[in-house]
Computed example of a mutant assay.
Amino acid sequence: MTLSIVLAFGLFLGLIVFLGLIARSLAMLGKRVPGEDREFLDPLSTPLRVLWPLVRFLDFHFGRLYPPGIVKRVELQLQLTGRSYLLSARQFISLSLVAAAIALIMALLVARWLGSSSLMFPLAAALLGSLLPRLWLRDIRARTVKQVEKQLPVYLDFLTLSMEAGLNLNGSLTQAVSKGPGGPLKREFEHVLRDLKSGLPRADALRRMDDRLQIREVTNFVSSVVQSERMGGSIATTLRFQSEQRRTERFQRAEKQAMEAPVKLIFPLVVFIFPVTFIVLGFPIVMKFMQEGLL
């Protein structure tokens, strides 16, 4: 009995020493991570600020081991969503790993509490946790495309009116940015103005905006302006035609969504509304039959 107590006490002390050594090693590795200057970067949200030390730890120690192909694809996704000034591609992959680890630990705790020994639920939770940042980027991309398609006719109207009033394209862009609504398109036009001020040719600045967004309407706008400038045509006329075309497309999208609404309502009607209606109407009849002994 005494020997068992001594062995258990020794194992307990050994476990404490082992955990202490691991914590000390992690602390030393954490101190090796250099500081980060975010003066010219986008501010972090509250959830990212909480997870950021772990993200930077993984990025600093293991970021160079990430496959280059995956890093390149993530860089393109960050560029398309306008989040390249928030975090890098390797930091995004590190964020996915951190989310997967947190989901795995929480799933293991839940499985332990439920008394389950299956690993399917923790592994599925880890997979879902790793996919959450990608779903976040996909949602941002969808909202960006929708906002750009909605705001592009407004900015084209501003550009057209400014050029017809006598301003050149650079001055018209400045007026459109100062008067136009906020959103991703305004930020992209601000990037175009910064590129122009840095000495980049106007066609190249517009093409860089097209590469960052990769939206069909923006591609048509950039191609028309660049071609009109190259051929010596009237940019104001081109912009007015683009504005009318974009506005027509916006009305067509609204009509399409309005026509799709009745089709989308069929499922909730059949699954949720019709059964409840039949229950409300049929319950008194069934009760009447039961009282009269017909059922």
Rank of each mutant, 00 (worst) to 15 (best):
K179D: 05
Q175N: 10
A124K: 07
E229G: 06
F40T: 09
D139R: 15
K256I: 14
D204A: 08
L97M: 14
N220M: 14
S243W: 11
G20S: 06
L41G: 05
K179Q: 07
L132G: 08
R24S: 11
T248F: 15
P201W: 01
F274Y: 12
K288I: 09
P47T: 14
R240W: 04
R230D: 02
N168E: 13
R187C: 01
W113V: 00
R208I: 09
F158C: 05
L269M: 13
S178G: 11
G129R: 13
A125M: 15
I102E: 07
S223M: 11
A165Y: 06
K72W: 10
I285Q: 07
S130T: 10
V74M: 08
E190P: 04
T144Q: 11
V110D: 04
P268T: 01
L265I: 01
D195F: 00
M1H: 05
F221P: 05
F221R: 08
N170L: 10
Q257H: 08
S96M: 15
V148Y: 06
V55P: 12
G171Y: 06
A89N: 07
Q252Y: 09
R194A: 07
D42W: 12
R230Y: 00
A27D: 09
M120P: 07
E229L: 00
A101H: 03
R187S: 08
S234Q: 12
Q214N: 12
R250L: 15
L65Q: 12
E217M: 07
R83Y: 15
A165T: 12
F267Y: 13
L108G: 02
A261W: 10
V33S: 02
A107C: 10
S172M: 03
R49E: 07
G232T: 02
V33I: 04
V276L: 15
L21S: 05
F57I: 10
L114N: 01
G129K: 12
I279S: 09
L135Q: 06
I70E: 02
G282V: 06
L19F: 11
F274N: 01
A258L: 12
K288R: 13
L137F: 06
I93T: 05
G82C: 01
A236W: 11
T238I: 00
A258P: 00
V263L: 15
L137C: 04
F272K: 00
Y155T: 01
S117E: 00
K146Y: 07
S45N: 12
K150V: 11
A258E: 00
G69A: 14
L213I: 02
L169C: 01
G20C: 03
F241G: 14
F241P: 05
R240C: 02
F62S: 13
L127W: 02
L21D: 07
W52F: 15
V286Y: 14
